[in-house]
Design a binder for these strands. Structure first.
Lengths: 159, 159
DNA sequence: ACGGCTGGCTTCTCTGGAGCAAGCCAGATG
DNA sequence: CATCTGGCTTGCTCCAGAGAAGCCAGCCGT
């Protein structure tokens, strides 16, 4: 009797996806990874997440193939950083769709607070999660900027 | 010290969305609602979900405005059914994106098991979550059919 | 050389939701 | 009158999240 259901073998692809990313922390970690977070501390600080939760989440996402561990040199030591895999980066449409839905249906208390999905090449705000509604180009992680009214724009990083 | 973080006031719209739907059961309930489930028993049977979990989820989704309770006559009794609101139906791009990602990155053990997102009007399989990649039409819930290799197609219902 | 700092974790306690099973209530049905 | 059915609620156990503390390795200032 597991704590949580296992949908990894479900016939519905939505259920199989949710088995991996049907958890707020998983998607928030991926959101940060798309915005350039790589190191444990990057994630911890930007997400205010408890350490045990973060290390478990990272391990799960690595095991699921959405992130990959890469060693890097920190002075005399070898540490690990977490980079998006292609599978991880291709969750961008899911995150964009959530962002666009949230902007529309869960507005912030302060009406000046917004985040737009911008197609970097043409500079237009797009309402489509995977394709620019202005110029029609397909949107991969490297082509998108999240424009935030409360902070600098963030150009997303691909694999 | 809540059990789970509260992102309802977060500046990032992704976090605000996840505050409502960042939970596998919430999205699975909405998936069933799009496929026509309305009554408690519909959800319970199709999701194999525990009763306490289902009743709490339904109550949360009603409170969040993604579902709405409507009375209906069942013989001599008045019962409640759960219908999608516009906000709930507009999560379709999120579910489509998850379905398309799952088809690509979490294939079923049996390679014959697939689910495609079909634009009902033109009959084409679309790779876009919110817009038909074949004819370019925007996809609302009433325009989409989920074609399942293991069962009949399901035409989704709008509000 | 020694104490403190930093990054990346692991371990501890506490609490409440998930999974499961059982119970409950009202109307229909036999 | 008894059973069935739909729509829940209640009780149990167990584990994941929240939060705080601890730990280890290397650099850093004195």
């Amino acid at each position: 009797m597991p704590l949580r259901s296992d949908w990894s073998g479900d016939r519905c692809p939505i259920a199989r996806s949710l088995d991996v990313v049907g958890d707020p922390w998983a998607l928030l970690v991926l959101r940060q990874a798309l915005q350039g977070a790589r190191r444990y501390e990057d994630f911890r600080r930007s997400l205010s997440v408890a350490d045990n939760v973060l290390s478990r989440r990272l391990a799960h996402l690595v095991e699921a193939g959405l992130l990959r561990r890469e060693p890097y040199r920190d002075g005399g030591r070898t540490r690990q950083e977490y980079r998006l895999t292609e599978a991880g980066a291709e969750l961008l449409p899911v995150l964009n769709a959530l962002a666009q839905w949230g902007e529309r249906h869960r507005p912030h208390a302060d009406p000046a607070v917004h985040m737009d999905v911008v197609h970097t090449a043409c500079g237009a705000v797009t309402a489509g999660p995977d394709r620019c509604t202005a110029c029609g180009a397909e949107l991969a992680a490297g082509d998108v900027t999240w424009r935030k009214s409360w902070a600098g724009d963030t150009a997303l990083v691909g694999v």
